[in-house]
Simulated scan of single mutants.
Amino acid sequence: MENKIYDVVIIGAGPAGLTSALYAGRSNLSVLVIEKPNVGSLVMAHKIENYPGVLHSPTGKEIYVLMKEQVSKFNVDFVEATFLSLEASDENKIVKTDKDNFTGKTVIIASGWAKNGSKKLPGEEKYLGKGVSYCATCDGAFTRNMTVSLFGKGKEIAEEALFLTKYSKEIHMFITDDCDDKCDLTLMEALKANEKVKMYYSSQLIEIKGEEFVEEVLVKVNGVENTYKTQFAFLYLGTKSLKELYGGIAELDEQGYIVTNEFMETSTLGVYAAGDVRSKVVRQVTTATSDGTIAALEAIKHVLKKQHLKVQYS
């Protein structure tokens, strides 16, 4: 891999990254995927029931293994490394990792939701897939008749809490901000009127506890620590890592996610973003694969146009 200039370098090996690698690899482009093993929302998902054409409710890791096996048939290179930074010029992009620097004509950022790269709370990593989740619309169906807790800003968790009212027995909303002008007041009033929902403001999650699965959470509410029984903890606590990683090469939204157009193009030519790292409303495996498809097709066109221009003027 040393000194090789890849047509496409992909940061992340989740559903978006692997889909991009599949399309680019099948197009006979040279492709490198940079991955951190056993990290990501897909790998951590304990059961997936809403992936079209898959009937036996596999784990996320099972789907990941099948995706990677399929991609590997098309001469795609993989490297296990931690992404550090990206330098982008009009000609080539330098992707810096803790293992080495890699050069690509194009780069697809598919590193997943920001939370996966941030510092974990006590108990968070231990109970991933065992009650800890980052997506209520993904895992809500597994919370039937359970007590659940959501943590995050009011605007971010209100819609997720409303979704959970279809399944959960009791819903604790631990809101980290004052919510005032930032929340949909109609939605908040609807939640307040729902007997399943309890709201706690000025909240800070301290620790997630349990035996094999999540059983309770230690939360500081208005400066006072208390333990609350719960069977699921949905975390929307945010991170600054995306701003630190990508702020210099892409436009970011208020939450730090990468802004793209419908072609997955960022504000830097030849750099694309796909999947949960992208600024959007819905984050599912199906939407990630869709993003990955579009990003790859655009990257392929970019590389082929560059090659054509070089031939014309050589």
Rank of each mutant, 00 (worst) to 15 (best):
S133K: 07
E159F: 12
E207W: 05
T137F: 04
T286V: 13
G25H: 04
Y228W: 03
D181S: 08
Y246V: 05
L32W: 05
E62P: 06
F232A: 02
L235N: 01
D291F: 07
L191I: 12
I206H: 02
P15Y: 08
E62W: 07
V43W: 13
L121H: 06
L128R: 15
E156R: 08
V285W: 06
I249K: 07
E170A: 01
K305E: 10
A81I: 00
Y134L: 03
T286E: 01
K166D: 13
L128C: 11
W113M: 04
T106G: 09
G123K: 04
S202T: 04
S89R: 14
F234P: 02
N28K: 15
L162T: 04
P15K: 10
H46F: 14
E35T: 07
A288Q: 13
Y246N: 06
M264L: 08
E80T: 06
F234W: 00
S30I: 08
N226F: 00
G154P: 02
A136Q: 03
L66V: 09
P122V: 07
T137Q: 01
K115H: 11
N194I: 12
Y23M: 04
Y127T: 09
S30K: 14
E49H: 12
F74K: 07
L185M: 14
E211H: 15
E244N: 15
G154Q: 05
H46N: 14
S168R: 01
G256D: 00
G12R: 03
N50H: 09
S118G: 07
I294N: 00
A24E: 01
M146A: 05
K126Y: 15
E212M: 15
N145Q: 05
A250I: 08
F213Q: 11
M44E: 10
N261F: 03
N222R: 05
N116H: 13
C135H: 02
F234T: 00
L309E: 11
D177M: 03
R26K: 14
E225M: 04
A296N: 06
L55V: 08
G140Y: 00
K169P: 01
R26C: 09
T106H: 11
A274Q: 02
A273Q: 07
E251S: 14
S27P: 12
L32C: 04
G292W: 07
H302Q: 10
N116M: 13
E125Q: 15
E212L: 15
K305M: 12
A288D: 11
T103Y: 15
E49S: 08
S85Q: 13
V79L: 00
W113H: 05
E69G: 08
E298H: 10
A295V: 04
L150K: 09
H172F: 12
K155G: 00
P122N: 11
K198D: 03
A273S: 13
T227P: 00
L185C: 11
F151L: 01
A13H: 02
E156K: 10
A24D: 01
K73R: 15
M1T: 10
D100E: 11
T266M: 10
S149A: 10
E251F: 12
E211T: 15
S41A: 13
S202M: 06
V79N: 00
E35H: 12
G210I: 03
T268K: 15
E156W: 05
I11K: 06
Y246Q: 06
L150A: 07
K209L: 09
L55A: 11
A158T: 10
E215V: 05
P37L: 08
V8P: 05
L297S: 02
G223N: 03
L32Q: 05
S111L: 07
F163D: 03
A45L: 08
P52L: 13
